[in-house]
Amino acid sequence: MIKSLKVLNHNLSNADNQLSILENELPRQTAFRNKIAAFGYTALQPSGIEVFQINIGKMCNQVCKHCHVDAGPDRKEIMTIETMQLCLVAIQNPTIKTVDLTGGAPELNPNFRWFVTEIKKLGKHIIVRCNLTIILANKKFNDLPDFFKLHQVEVVSSLPSFTAQRTDSQRGDGVFNDSIKALQMLNAVGYGVANNGLILNLVYNPAGAFLPPSQAALETEYKTELFKNFGITFNSLFAITNMPISRYLDYLLVSGNYQKYMDKLIAAFNPSAINNVMCRNTISVSWDGFLYDCDFNQMLDLKVKYPAPQHLSEFNIQLLNTRNIVLKQHCYGCTAGAGSSCGGAVAI
């Protein structure tokens, strides 16, 4: 099994080292903050916190080559039940409509099912970022589709291609076949098959050093191919750009694609994506309860800017709503082309 950068004590497991590489190209590259300033954004502020995204642990049964979390079976960071209770207090705020659970594989947190049940009691919409293969990883996870259905959870799952070769090249040998089986299990309980409220969305992200093609064209092709070859149906496809951080940054550097990729992101800058970037309506919470503008800033250890509270124990939505979002060069990843967010493209 491939080890995480953290366990390998790799240079890039340190957030400062990643930031130093990303900022090193300045001034050859235009700083992101200067780029958006040219379009009238002297700072970027939230439009309001509607999505509460929680990373409940970095442990995962997969070791994907592009993973910005550097997740894997050797990661031991798991959210405790005490921190989950702090989340439950914070999300009682009525502006928060959606709780987005991510990881690692969030299902590997021993308190995952309890947490989902408690969130649902508060009437929040729940998204689980399920890697699909977890459903088949152990018998005790085989009933996850039924559990998701019981709590009307929206399932969002990565599948970088409708072919085995490309999927396995990014996510590991055998992942495609297991993902197909898991999708069929989700379809079997009613996910992604009708207008029954059981939403199954797939995520495309490029298996290589390039940007996603048209989200609409991909969705049409995925729907055709997955149904023709495997009888699988789903709701929507989100096309997400890979962020030049963590393991994907390592891939870019080792393959000699880093500079070209950054140039590509910058050349594809789309000002119409700025308004809809996810950091404007999302707050990201780490396994140990710290607060970040997005999942990517979390992995770069860029906590929300003072005077906004940096930890759940001091959660204050008013202060968070007036904060300035922390911007660095990786932010170009969310404004390239049609833009990118956890919900896919953000601009035409």
């Binding site: 291609s161 072919t163 070769q165 490309r166 390039f210 940007l211 093609p213 064209a217 991909l218």
Partner: peptide, 11 residues
């Protein structure tokens, strides 16, 4: 080559 691969064609 880049465009066709990016659009999803296999090798």
């Amino acid at each position: 080559s880049a465009d066709a691969y990016e659009k999803g064609y296999s090798q």
